[in-house]
Design a protein around this nucleic acid. Structure first.
Lengths: 104, 104
DNA sequence: CGAGTATACCTCAAATCTCGAGGTATGTAA
DNA sequence: TTACATACCTCGAGATTTGAGGTATACTCG
């Protein structure tokens, strides 16, 4: 395991609350984390595309102000992914704490 | 930021308790985390070498059973690194929790 | 009116991190 | 003597992320 990509988990969690487009997802994550978590677009879009490819999220293309917006929402599969990755994250945080607590 | 390498932090913390050689560091981390955190040798040795290069740890080469052992210990600089990275990690965990807590 | 900023989407090269497999060598247990 | 544990190491491949670049529209400030 070893903590690599937390972005899929963050995206899944964000979409579980509300369907949003890519740009808004990034802003939401940044705002909720008070600026600490700040993923760039070069990271976000590829991640969004791979989550869509594996069926965890689905895109709805709608037209706003004459321009296309890709609104993403969580699928059932994505919901299961979210649960699994949340547990995984909690496990890693717990393990890190065990090590960081040092010898007792 | 965004959580990438937690291994340097783990190594620094482990060595702050006791000077150890590479192989033992990996085992210590795995044991303390109850098997959750399990970094491979291909990851560990390069990390050890780069920590040594930047002056965070120092190696003492001693001979045990006719073979050379590289015992690493924390330097003053490494201690400062440890403190900084611990804070960094706590910050990220807090930020992740804020996002995962969702809208309230 | 023009400049700048925000929104919204996208791609690509480079850097970094990790794994897995491979290699060397010794000691000990089955 | 075969196998496993200890102990060290390197390298290729894959994944993730950054930073820079590109396109385009809309809004605000002076």
């Amino acid at each position: 395991m070893n903590v690599k990509g937390t972005l899929p988990l963050l995206v899944l969690q964000t979409l579980s609350e509300e369907a949003l487009h890519g740009y808004a997802i990034a802003q939401r994550i940044k705002a909720r984390s008070k600026g600490v978590l700040d993923f760039k677009e070069g990271t976000l879009y590829p991640t969004l595309h791979s989550l869509e490819e594996q069926g965890s999220i689905e895109a709805n293309s709608i037209v706003v102000d004459g321009r296309i917006r890709h609104i993403y929402r969580l699928t059932d599969k994505g919901n299961k992914m979210l649960e699994a990755q949340s547990l995984e994250w909690a496990k890693i945080v717990g393990a890190m704490n065990n090590v960081l607590a040092g010898a007792k």
